[in-house]
Nucleic acid binder design. Structure first.
Lengths: 208, 208
DNA sequence: TTTTTCAGTGTACACATGTACGCCATTTTA
DNA sequence: TAAAATGGCGTACATGTGTACACTGAAAAA
C-alpha cells in the first residue's frame, strides 16, 4: 500500500518544484518569484502552497538540493567519459559546458543564490559546491599522488575557474562558448602545472 | 555662478545614491530595495525620486559606476604599495581583502548584479571587471615580457580567483579571511608559475 | 460503518508598491 | 520686474503580495 493520498501529495509537490524551476530564466531569479505565481503555474490555489512548504524559502532550498543532484549527475557523466580515455581537463570542461547549455536555469540558480540575501541559501549552495570540489580533490590526490593541501588548493581554484566560465557562458552564444572553453582549458593547465611543480618540490623536502 | 539650483539638485541626487548604498547589506540586495524605501531614507517624497532617476534601474547603474570607481581606487592603492617593494601577489591580495572589509556592500553589489536579472547590469559589472583585468594584463606583459594572450589568460584567471575569494571573505570573520588570503596567494602562484612556464616554451618556439 | 485526517478551495484583509496628477515655492530666464 | 522652469510635496489609485480563516470532499483510521 503506497497510500494513494501520499502519492498524490508527492505529485503536486513536484508540480510546485517544476513550476518554480520553469519560471527561472535569465531575467527572472528565484527571489523575484512570488508564492502566488508559483502556485498558479502549478495549477494550485495560493493557499494550497502551504500544504507543501511553509515558505518560498523552503521551496528554494529544495531547488538548491535539486541543483546539487544535477551537478553530481554531471560529475558521473564526466567520469564515465574520462574512463574512456582522453584529456581529463578537456573532457571535464566540455562536459561542464554541455551541462550549462542544458541546465542554464539551474546553474543560474546556484550562481545567484551563492551571493544572495539568505544565509541559508548561501550555505546550501556552498555545500553543494564543496562536494564538487572535494571529489575533484580526491581524484587529484589519487591520480597524481598529490599532497592533500596542494590538491585541495588546485581543486578549489579549478572549480572556481570553471564556475566562472560557466557564468560567462550563460550570456554568450555557441561560438563564444567554444572560445571560452579553450581559454578555460588553458587556465586549468596553468593551475595544474603550477600545483604539480609545487607538489614536486614538496616531495623533495619530505624525502630529505 | 554655479547655479544654486543645480547645486541643490546634485546634493539630493547624492542623498539618493547614498541612501541606496546605505541600505545594502548581506541580507538586502539592490533589487530588493523599493523606490519608496530609498526615497524615504533620503528624506524625499516618493514621487520626487523621478526628478533624478527615471527608474530604480537607472539608480542601480549609477551605483555600479560608483563601485567601479572604488575598484579603480583600490588598484591605485595596490600599485602604490607595490612600488615600495614586496611580493606583488601578496600585496595585491592583502589590499583586496582590506578593500572587502571596508567596502563589503559595494563589493556585494558587484557580485550580485553580475549574475542578476538585468542584462544591462550584468554588462555594466562585466565592463568594470574587464577594466580591472586589462590593467593587470598590461602589467604582466610589461613586467614579465609576456605574450599578450598568455598574459590575458593569467590575468583573467587571477581576477576570477581573487573575486571568488572576496566573495568567500564576505561571510567569514577575520580569522577566516587570513586563511583565505593565504590560500589565494598560493593559488595565484600556481597560476603565475603555470603561465610563466607556458610563456617560456612559447618564446623558445618563436626564437626557432 | 463511523470518525478523523487533510490536501485543496475561495474569500477576505491589511499592506506595500509604482506612478499619474495637480499644486506650491523658489530659482532662473527674459 | 514679469514670466517661465523646475525641484519637491501630497493625494490618489490600481495592482500584487502573504496569509488567516472557514469550508469541502475524499482518503485513512477506528
Amino acid at each position: 500500500m503506497t497510500g494513494i493520498r501520499a502519492q498524490q501529495k508527492e505529485k503536486t509537490r513536484r508540480q510546485l518544484i517544476d513550476a518554480a524551476l520553469g519560471q527561472l530564466s535569465s531575467e527572472r531569479s528565484f527571489s523575484s518569484l512570488s508564492l502566488r505565481e508559483v502556485a498558479k503555474e502549478a495549477g494550485l490555489a495560493p493557499t494550497s502552497f502551504y500544504r507543501h512548504f511553509t515558505d518560498m524559502d523552503e521551496l528554494g532550498l529544495t531547488l538548491v538540493d535539486e541543483a546539487g543532484l544535477t551537478l553530481r549527475q554531471l560529475m558521473r557523466q564526466a567520469r564515465q567519459r574520462i574512463e574512456k580515455g582522453g584529456s581529463v581537463i578537456r573532457i571535464s570542461v566540455v562536459t561542464f559546458m554541455e551541462f550549462i547549455e542544458n541546465n542554464g536555469n539551474i546553474f543560474r540558480l546556484l550562481l545567484r543564490e551563492r551571493s544572495g540575501t539568505s544565509a541559508a541559501f548561501r550555505a546550501a549552495v556552498n555545500r553543494e559546491i564543496s562536494y564538487f570540489t572535494l571529489e575533484l580533490c580526491d581524484y587529484l590526490q589519487q591520480a597524481n599522488q598529490m599532497d592533500a593541501e596542494v590538491a585541495y588548493m588546485q581543486a578549489n581554484a579549478a572549480v572556481t575557474i570553471v564556475f566562472s566560465a560557466g557564468s560567462d557562458a550563460l550570456d554568450g552564444d555557441k561560438k563564444d562558448r567554444e572560445q571560452l572553453a579553450l581559454r578555460t582549458i588553458q587556465q586549468l593547465r596553468f593551475i595544474a602545472r603550477g600545483a604539480a611543480e609545487f607538489n614536486h618540490r614538496l616531495n623533495i623536502v619530505k624525502n630529505v
